[in-house]
């Protein structure tokens, strides 16, 4: 029926066209840009010049020619991995506790996790700038301990430590929510059964709760790992000059040196990394996703 098709097109068409124009097309432009030459004054050189198409693999060769870029990628993966692990360590006890309090308190406790998350991202990073600043009470306390042991005082701000703290702080709720959603569904009878069979508290956790919660752990890990991998603002604000990650490198290519082809290449590498991780996480957490 024609009318039905028209209705279908009218609901589906406008958002579809919008996303094709402003999401798919820009993505393709970026792929194309990664094969082009940089312009003389930044940006891109003309695509068609002197009677030939101007395409090159130069940026990809350049990426692998200097180990520093691979190193920055590896470092970003390391930071993202470490942030994810710390988030698991912090989120797990909290999520577990929320599932064990009476039902009427649970929503409030979950809300309390999400609430700080409602404040602006920059404000949350800025808060750590104050806390880790050289004159802060926290820095003074840490350094009085450090000097008491006979070491030189350590600057906390503008260090890899500050970057990790900031990353964990900004992404923690992403870990708590999927973990809680998963843990909430566990049947307490399983733990009783394990106990009756003689398992102690530690064994009950490792043999029952933890394996069952893995889908939640994987889902939360993807939600933390992926944004951290592309983050530039946290290292930019809390990190020192040496704490550059992929995001900072990309930002520098587009807004600093204006080498757009190389910036596009880096963005594509990041996209590929993200897709690989998302595929992995999806594979492992399919169970939890189908329940959520």
């Amino acid at each position: 029926m024609n009318k039905e098709r028209l209705t279908r097109w009218l609901t589906f068409g406008p958002p579809f066209i919008f996303m094709v124009v402003f999401f798919v097309l820009p993505a393709f432009i970026m792929v194309a840009a990664s094969f082009r030459f940089p312009g003389e004054y930044g940006g891109l050189a003309p695509m068609f010049e002197n009677g030939t198409w101007q395409f090159t693999l130069e940026t990809y060769r350049f990426f692998f020619s200097d180990f520093i870029y691979t190193e920055i990628f590896l470092k970003s993966f390391f930071i993202a991995g470490l942030t994810t692990l710390i988030c698991i360590a912090l989120a797990y006890p909290l999520a577990l506790l929320i599932t064990r309090v009476p039902k009427r308190f649970r929503d409030v406790m979950v809300l309390l996790v999400v609430l700080p998350f409602a404040s602006n991202f920059l404000i949350r990073v800025y808060a750590w700038m104050i806390i880790l600043g050289p004159q802060s009470a926290f820095s003074t306390a840490v350094n009085s301990v450090v000097t008491a042991f006979g070491f030189e005082p350590v600057p906390l701000l503008f260090s890899p430590f500050a970057v990790i703290v900031g990353m964990v702080y900004v992404h923690l709720p992403f870990m708590v929510l999927p973990l809680y959603t998963n843990l909430e569904k566990h049947d307490p009878i399983l733990l009783d059964a394990a106990q009756d069979l003689g398992a102690n508290a530690w064994q009950r956790f490792w043999k029952v709760t933890w394996p069952l919660s893995l889908p939640g752990v994987y889902a939360g890990s993807a939600l933390v790992f992926i944004p951290v991998l592309g983050m530039f603002a946290v290292p930019d604000i809390l990190g020192g000059t040496g704490d550059i990650l992929i995001g900072n490198l990309i930002k520098e290519q587009f807004l600093g040196t204006r080498d757009w082809p190389f910036g596009s290449t880096l963005s594509i590498m990041l996209t590929l990394a993200v897709l690989a991780i998302a595929a992995l996480a999806m594979r492992y957490s399919r169970k939890s996703l189908s329940h959520a």
């Binding site: 820009p26 970026m30 983050m231 930002k251 990041l270």
Partner: peptide, 12 residues
Amino acid sequence: MPEILLGVSLLL
């Protein structure tokens, strides 16, 4: 996706 990717592709 990491936000930066949408940002730079739209910039381009």
